[in-house]
Computed example of a mutant assay.
Amino acid sequence: MTKRVGYAPGVYDLFHIGHLNILRRASERCDHLIAGVVSDEMTLMAKGKTPVVPLSERLEIVSHIDFVDEAVAETVPDKLDVWADHPFDVIFKGDDWRGTAKGDRLERKFAKVGVEVFYLPYTAHTSSTHLRSVLGITAS
Rank of each mutant, 00 (worst) to 15 (best):
M42Y: 02
D85N: 11
F92L: 08
G99W: 11
M42V: 14
P51W: 01
L33M: 04
K3A: 15
L131I: 10
R108F: 08
Y7P: 03
D66H: 13
F110N: 02
V52A: 02
K47F: 02
G99N: 12
L80N: 10
M45S: 15
D40M: 02
L106D: 10
D104Y: 12
H19S: 04
F118T: 14
I61W: 01
M1R: 12
G18Y: 01
E41M: 10
H19N: 06
M1D: 14
A8H: 01
H86E: 03
D40V: 00
A124V: 15
R105I: 13
L33Y: 02
L131M: 09
G48K: 06
D85I: 08
P121Y: 10
V37R: 01
A35D: 06
H16C: 05
T126G: 13
T75F: 12
L106I: 09
K102V: 11
L80F: 15
I34C: 01
S39C: 05
P54V: 00
V62D: 03
L135Y: 15
D85H: 13
T129A: 09
C30D: 03
A101H: 09
R25W: 15
G18S: 04
G114H: 12
R25N: 10
S56L: 06
V68K: 02
R132T: 09
Y119S: 03
A46G: 13
E28M: 11
G136D: 07
V68C: 07
T138F: 13
R4D: 04
P9K: 06
N21K: 12
G99V: 08
D40Q: 03
L23H: 02
L80T: 11
A26T: 01
W97H: 06
S140L: 13
T43C: 08
S39A: 04
L135E: 07
T2K: 14
P51M: 03
T2M: 13
V82S: 06
H86T: 12
L23K: 02
D69K: 07
I137K: 03
R29Q: 11
L59E: 00
S140T: 14
E116D: 10
L20Y: 13
S127Q: 04
H86N: 11
R98Y: 05
T126P: 10
V38I: 14
L131R: 04
P77D: 13
Y122N: 11
E57A: 10
H16D: 03
L23A: 03
D96T: 14
I34N: 00
V115D: 01
H32I: 09
D85V: 12
L135P: 04
K47D: 06
G18V: 02
D81W: 12
A8G: 04
G114V: 12
G114Y: 15
P54K: 00
D66N: 12
V11T: 12
L135G: 11
V134E: 15
L106K: 10
H19Q: 06
G99Q: 09
H16F: 05
D85P: 09
